[in-house]
């Protein structure tokens, strides 16, 4: 099986959140993104720093919501992949 690159993993996480009406629990991200717990936390921190997702602390626990910038990433994903592939940026 081919190893996913960073951009594909980000897409998978954002897509998982988007498919759950924009908000998701970390356990679901772990299951959907197929990452280790440590790797998932690193990606979640990166996504929050980039403004793609926000963390919500609710009474039922921690959840993550996708931001408009995260949706923009999903919408432009095909363009991002084709551009990065063609110019060898991966």
């Amino acid at each position: 099986m081919r190893k996913r690159n960073r951009l594909e993993i980000i897409y998978d996480i954002l897509k998982a959140i988007s498919n759950k009406n924009g908000t998701i629990k970390p356990t679901h991200i772990l299951y959907k993104s197929n990452l280790s717990h440590k790797m998932m936390n690193e990606y979640l921190k990166e996504l929050m720093d980039s403004g793609f997702i926000i963390e919500n602390n609710t009474s039922s626990g921690k959840t993550y919501s996708i931001t408009p910038q995260g949706f923009e990433y999903l919408n432009k994903y095909k363009m991002i992949i084709e551009f990065t592939d063609s110019f060898g940026l991966n």
Binding site: L7, E46, E72, K76, I80, F83, T84, F87, L89
Partner: peptide, 18 residues
Amino acid sequence: LLAFKIFKLTKSNNSKLL
């Protein structure tokens, strides 16, 4: 311009350099 747009979305250093 497109490379900078991709950089804005991905924060990839290579996009910035391109």
